[in-house]
């Protein structure tokens, strides 16, 4: 059994450095602020709706009428997490990329990479430690974001959140950690492999643009249902059977459109989290079991994509000419 103590040693060192990194602190706070602004705006609106319903209810009771004369609305506070998820998709990914770049450049530029690799540990242990440190950093920052969101939802929405909501938030936190860890691995790997870490960051941003922004946006733009607010079929009041018949005529087009979307890990992350949180209408109020049955493909894509990238970083040897005297 090999001694693996170097892995937590390096990962904890990275955590200590990250906690003192003003850029990462500022970026995380910016992500928190962006996530909370959209969430607080939504909770204010929901609180108003809840208050309106409660007032109407009181009025009915005061008039001696039955509550059955108005439909009881259903409030889903987790639907308000849409903005937070979108901030994690885009802004969180940028932070993860830069964190990955910094994790590589801090070892290369300071010659500490050479110091570590002349210690009694295997090179893969160093790489595993850096990846775990990055995943830990992402998990911690996201835990902070989700904990604050839970507090805002519990106190601000007017109806609170239950244990099932907390479980859904926890699942979303896990998926978000996987997503950002994968992006971290891209930033770290490219900044370590390429001759200049700055080139690594540049390539990483090009990939970010393609995966996080371009592919999902093309998929969205090609979706005719997204061209009219509320959806084309809904606006035209086309019955479900007719919708299916129309869609069959565009099967090839839809396959291409969907293919572009699912080439992006961001879309899989979005589809899974939107379903778990009930943001997508067809999953609102649904139990987790049926959601998992429907969305496990997206979850597995996310898991395998992250593990695959991590494996790629681990397997690729560190080239000696990356131990330059100056970078």
């Amino acid at each position: 059994m090999p001694d693996l103590s170097a892995i937590p040693t390096i990962a904890l060192k990275d955590a200590r450095i990250a906690l003192r990194d003003r850029f990462l602190l500022a970026a995380t706070l910016a992500l928190v602020a962006a996530a909370l602004i959209s969430l607080i705006t939504g909770t204010v609106a929901m609180r108003t709706d809840v208050a309106t319903y409660m007032a109407a209810k009181q009025q009915l009771l005061a008039l001696g009428k039955s509550l059955g004369s108005i439909a009881a609305p259903e409030f889903y506070p987790l639907k308000l997490m849409r903005g937070t998820i979108e901030q994690i998709e885009i802004m969180g990914a940028v932070i993860a990329l830069i964190a990955g770049y910094r994790a590589a450049v801090e070892e290369r530029g300071r010659q500490t990479l050479a110091l570590i690799l002349t210690r009694p540990l295997s090179n893969w242990q160093f790489l595993a430690a850096k990846l775990l440190g990055g995943a830990g950093l992402m998990a911690t920052a996201l835990a902070f974001v989700f904990a604050l969101c839970a507090v805002v939802l519990a106190l601000g929405s007017g109806i609170g959140i239950g244990a099932n909501d907390l479980l859904r938030l926890a699942i979303t936190w896990g998926a978000s950690t996987l997503y950002l860890s994968a992006i971290f691995a891209v930033g770290f790997g490219l900044s370590l492999w390429l001759k200049s870490p700055a080139s690594g960051l540049l390539y990483a941003f090009a990939l970010w643009l393609l995966v996080v922004l371009v592919a999902p946006q093309i998929g969205d733009t090609m979706d005719p249902d997204n061209q009219v607010a509320g959806g084309v079929f809904a606006q035209l009041s086309i019955p479900k059977a007719e919708q299916t018949r129309i869609k069959q005529g565009f099967a090839t087009y839809e396959t291409i459109r969907n293919g572009i979307e699912v080439s992006s890990v961001t879309k899989h992350y979005e589809r899974f989290t939107f379903a778990v949180l009930g943001i997508k209408d067809i999953y609102t109020g649904k139990a987790l079991g049926p959601i998992w049955a429907d969305k496990k493909g997206d979850a597995w894509f996310l898991i395998l994509f992250t593990l695959g990238l991590g494996g790629l970083v681990l397997l690729r040897p560190i080239r000696a000419d990356r131990l330059t005297k100056e970078t």
Binding site: I17, Q111, T112
Partner: peptide
């Protein structure tokens, strides 16, 4: 069994 000091070592600034 070895110790190594590279040229221009900078170590971890924030530690």
């Amino acid at each position: 069994a070895i110790g190594y000091l590279p040229e221009n070592v900078r170590l971890y600034d924030t530690l």
